[in-house]
Design a protein around this nucleic acid. Structure first.
Length: 687
RNA sequence: GGGCCCGUAGCUCAGCGGUUAGAGCAGGGGACUCAUAAUCCCUUGGUCGGGGGUUCGAAUCCCUCCGGGCCUACCA
């Protein structure tokens, strides 16, 4: 096999927060792939860096009362420690805020300019009236101009899913200061990426650079129409690199310089190693592989290849895209304690568990993977500990004194079968189908254990005449174990090292699985991996909950230092108090207590439940309430609620709604209905 | 509104045009005692989301409906 030269990157983590178990899906996936390639004898370097620019970093540093440089330095140290704790082995871990990156940004910018792909345009945008900084759409909230829903983001409406620009919002508010933003004009720089449309069509749709569904998505979503110009600048103040010729006034948008950080980090490594940078980024001999999450596809599959193409760099051989992590079937949640930081995990559990579990769950597609905590414990225990490690544990002590047999005994073809599986397993790794690889490897373990059971060396050893046979059986068992461990080494490097110590032979190459060890000594067996304990998982979850609660308190403290309440001021900032009204205005609205008589799904509606409310006696009202995502109909029946009872009936798609139920929250799953204390009666007015 | 993806045993998933649809875990029964109460044998369990079509043949291809997830360009 010819040696490949491979450059692998994982997405650059944003330097605005610590690494959590969701991030680790990607870094573990990538690290396994890198270790696999190295074990196969290929030259493979693993490059990453912190992504350090942008408005969010600027704000965080200000909040912490330190410089951006201090802030990102601290964060980088924390990130590197987390990765090291999980055995993620970067060849270089750089930063996008580096001289190398600045220099490369300039170089690529020059190419874009030379090819006439940069244009300037004046954009109307919103600025914070207090700090003067420009406000990205997400930092502005207000009332949707299409449907009138309050408290929507500046780019699209959660309620009616209309898309618009932040300047169109009614009564917009800056989420930074709580003040209305001011409208202004600013020059922005754009890359006219449409000029590369033909190239992108070809690159995304042919060859195997992308998974099929990614190619389909890009085609259906972006490439079927002219590509919009890409806004790559941000006006001052901004933490980033100045655009040449506009120093102090315009900066490159963080997504312009972030992927260039892959190159910058490589460049740093090359300088240290005495390697040629062009040999890695301008040589057809190098395969470049990016691993990213499905959220940042368009940057990596459209803009990035376009930039590389324009500036004459090597295009990615493949962009490997994975889905997100859910825990126990739901989005990671701070409140549930499932938003687990890497450092918190490491305090309670062995990283080997997570590496194996993720490997067992990862497929070649973009599906989200779910970490079911019960399954996590189960899978690790039964596969890694009970099947694999136990195989070594039960055989090693019988041959600790004699070592392995001088010649490899007849094992009924088991070792040969394992050796023959080599390419199938390798293909699965290569295709990032680790779940398949793990299944194939566990099949080997499922054959090894019955062999040992049938041979029953613990019976034979009672007869001294059978000593050779006992040695032979254990020679087979330990070789089958080692073969499994060679295949598993990219996933659980720590166990592979322990295997090297037990059998006195290094695992250096994938093909070590082709030849059994004979005649070598066997060390005294030492515990390799303990079983997962439910109490440790629970402790990890509990600690994560506490952290989240503490963080929420801290945030409340810092934003409302003079009050005694621990509540955040964010909701009030997002939707400030309305204009004063008179008592007469207030009594116009007749609020009543009502009992939910029945609640049913409106199957065609996304958000609506159809409620029948009783105001006591025979008085009934039909109300359509937008609470489908937050409440189950069966949980509502019988409950007391507060309703606006004299509201003019409103005709809706599914019928007439004769009132509204009182609730707070952003909408979607965040809806909180008002309750009624003990003793309240349907029909009573609320004053 | 548009787009992408997914619905297979209680759970996690494999199979993706060809014998009676599989694995692991969980459940039930038994064996063993070398091993981290591990292992081994046997076993229960599915009209492959519904309907229609193409085909000699469909879990697999096409259409449609239902259910779920995600994306929609300045949140990473």
């Amino acid at each position: 096999m010819t040696q490949r030269q491979i450059l692998v990157t994982a997405a650059l983590p944003y330097a605005n927060g610590p690494i959590h178990i969701g991030h680790l899906v990607e870094y573990i996936q990538t690290d396994i792939w890198v270790r696999f390639q190295r074990l196969r004898g290929h030259r493979c370097i693993f490059i990453c860096a912190d992504d350090t620019h942008g408005t969010a970093i600027m704000k965080s540093a200000r909040q912490r009362n330190c410089t951006e440089q201090q802030f990102i330095d601290e964060m980088q140290a924390a990130h590197q420690e987390d990765f090291a704790g999980f055995g993620v082995t970067f060849d270089n871990y750089g930063s996008t805020h580096s001289d190398e990156n600045r220099q490369l940004c300039h170089e690529i910018w020059r190419s874009l300019n030379e090819q006439g792909l940069i244009k300037q345009e004046t954009v109307v945008e919103l600025f914070d009236s207090q700090s003067g900084e420009s406000l990205p759409d997400r930092f502005v909230r207000g009332t949707c101009p299409k449907c009138g829903a309050p408290d929507q983001y500046g780019d699209n409406c959660d309620k009616c899913s209309a898309t618009y620009s932040a300047v169109d919002l009614i009564d917009p508010i800056s989420t930074t200061s709580g003040q209305p933003p001011v409208q202004g004009e600013a020059v922005h720089y754009f890359v006219t990426i449409e000029a590369l449309h033909e190239f992108l069509d070809e690159w995304t749709q042919s060859g195997s650079h992308l998974q099929d569904e990614v190619a389909n998505y890009l085609k259906g979503h972006f490439l079927h129409e002219p590509l919009r110009d890409w806004d790559v600048s941000r006006p001052a103040p901004y933490f980033g690199f100045d655009i040449p010729g506009t120093e102090g006034r315009h900066f490159w948008y963080v997504w312009f310089d972030a992927p260039i950080g892959y190159m910058a980090s490589t460049k740093q490594w090359c300088a240290e190693q005495g390697e040629s940078f062009d040999g890695w980024w301008k040589s057809p001999a190098t395969e470049i592989h990016h691993f990213i999450g499905k959220d940042i596809q368009y940057f990596h599959c459209l803009f990035w290849p376009a930039m590389l193409k324009t500036a004459g760099f090597t295009l990615p051989e493949k962009v490997h895209i994975h889905g997100f992590l859910t825990v126990n079937g739901r989005k990671m949640s701070k409140r549930d304690g499932t938003f687990v930081m890497a450092a918190t995990y490491l305090k309670h559990l062995n990283p080997t568990y997570l590496r194996y579990y993720y490997a067992a769950k990862l497929g070649p597609r973009l599906d989200d993977i779910d970490m079911n905590l019960e399954e996590f414990q189960n899978k690790v225990d039964s596969d890694l500990v009970n099947k694999v490690v136990n195989l070594a544990s039960r055989a090693a002590k019988f041959v600790a004194e004699t070592g392995l047999s001088a010649t490899y005994p007849d094992d009924g073809g088991l070792f040969q079968q394992g050796a023959a599986a080599s390419e199938l397993i390798a293909e699965a790794y290569e295709a990032c189908n680790y779940g398949r690889a793990m299944r194939l490897i566990m099949e080997l373990a499922d054959r090894a254990n019955p062999f040992f059971d049938d041979a029953a060396p613990w019976v034979l050893r009672k007869d001294p005449a059978q000593a050779d046979r006992v040695q032979e059986i254990c020679t087979v068992a330990l070789n089958l174990y080692r073969q499994i461990m060679v295949y598993l080494a990219p996933v659980v490097p720590e166990l592979a090292e322990k295997t090297e110590i037990l059998l006195g032979q290094p695992i250096k190459h994938w093909d070590d699985a082709q030849t059994p060890l004979t005649g070598s000594p066997v060390a005294k067996f030492k515990h390799m991996l303990k079983r997962v304990e439910a109490k440790d998982i629970q402790a990890m979850i509990d600690e994560s909950k506490e952290q989240a609660a503490a963080a929420a308190d801290a945030e409340a403290d810092s934003s409302t230092p003079s009050t005694t309440t621990a509540d955040s001021d964010a909701p009030l900032k997002a939707e400030p108090l309305a204009d004063q009204c008179t008592f007469d205005d207030f009594v116009k609205v007749d609020l009543r207590i009502a009992r939910v008589v029945s609640a049913e799904n409106v199957p065609e509606a996304n958000k609506l439940l159809k409620l029948t409310l009783s105001l006591g006696g025979d008085e009934r009202r039909t109300v359509f309430a937008g609470i489908k995502k937050a409440y189950q109909p069966e949980d509502l029946e019988g409950r007391l609620v507060v309703m606006a009872a004299n509201l003019a009936p409103r005709k809706m798609k599914f019928g007439v709604s004769e009132g509204m139920i009182l609730a707070s929250g952003e909408g979607g799953k965040e809806v909180f209905m008002l309750g009624v204390d003990e003793g309240g009666q349907p029909g009573q007015r609320v004053h």
